[in-house]
């Protein structure tokens, strides 16, 4: 017993080193698997507050480009409304008592990474604004990611530029689909894999979400086909997709809540 205690005291530095190294390796391994990195997260009170403070300063430098984007989005929405045969927006009557399938909440980006392999985005809305895990995040142009971790005032979004991210996506003109991944190289180009070889592809074709999960509705834009090739087994296409969004420059986003998610999930669980 005496010898064990002596050994511990003699090697206390090395033992402390090994213990802390073990803890940090555990954190690292957790961060490389989806939905497990809860503890080390920037959604906590202090870092969220510091990022919010930084954002309140840097906000002013992007006002011009954000204004332009909002005007473009407004223009597009006005065109859609007039194409539906309604002359003035004020003439439409929106029945809010009737259940909408999806509802949108606006949020702002506080921190956006794109230089690492596993990138996360911090937004300024949390559980207080009814943002919860597994909600989709989009901009006016296309998808950004999925909410992974929330606190009271902040949420962490797993960006599509993350090696753990797998999002169902497919072609706009047909029903073939695959899953969207990122190879870690260019922040504006993602990869769509496991699209069956029967699909007819052309460079410049649009890739959209297919609404096969409860996260994104059908038809949210992702990007256009940059180039494509068959994989080694010649059975699936591997497609490079150029994103509509510039992932290095996002200001405001919308979180999508699927109001029927629980109903769909309970139906899916029935046959288990």
């Amino acid at each position: 017993m005496q010898q064990i205690i002596n050994f511990l005291i003699r090697n206390k530095h090395s033992l402390l080193f090994l213990l802390l190294l073990f803890v940090s390796i555990i954190f690292t391994i957790q961060s490389h698997s989806y939905h497990k990195s809860k503890f080390v997260s920037s959604t906590n009170f202090i870092s969220g507050r510091i990022y919010r403070w930084q954002h309140s300063v840097s906000d002013y430098f992007n006002l011009k480009s954000e204004n332009k984007r909002l005007l473009e989005e407004n223009e597009r929405l006005h065109n859609i409304v007039s194409a539906m045969g309604v002359d003035s927006i004020s003439a439409t009557y929106v029945d809010t008592t009737f259940a909408k399938p999806f509802s949108y909440t606006k949020a702002r980006i506080l921190k956006n990474d794109y230089s690492k392999i596993d990138n996360y985005i911090l937004i300024n809305k949390g559980e207080k604004d009814s943002i919860f895990p597994d909600m989709g995040i989009i901009t006016d142009k296309g998808i950004i990611g999925i909410v992974e971790n929330t606190s009271k005032n902040y949420s962490r979004v797993i960006s599509i530029l993350n090696s753990n991210s797998r999002i169902n996506a497919g072609l706009k003109k047909s029903n073939q689909y695959g899953s969207l991944i990122w190879n870690g190289k260019d922040p504006n180009i993602v990869q769509l894999e496991t699209v069956p070889r029967q699909a007819i592809l052309k460079e410049g074709d649009t890739i959209i979400t297919h609404g096969r999960s409860t996260i994104f509705p059908r038809g949210i834009g992702i990007g256009t086909i940059l180039n494509y090739k068959l994989d080694q087994n010649k059975s699936y296409y591997l497609i490079d997709v150029k994103l509509f969004n510039d992932m290095t420059d996002i200001g405001f986003v919308y979180a999508i809540k699927n109001n029927n998610a629980e109903e769909i999930k309970s139906l899916e669980n029935l046959d288990l």
Binding site: L21, S24, I25, S31, S47, D118
Partner: peptide, 18 residues
């Protein structure tokens, strides 16, 4: 670990610093 928390990077900076 503080750098990790701000950067959402798990424990990589903590391990490297250690």
């Amino acid at each position: 670990l503080i750098i990790d928390i701000f950067g959402d990077s798990g424990g990589v900076h903590a391990a490297a610093c250690l």
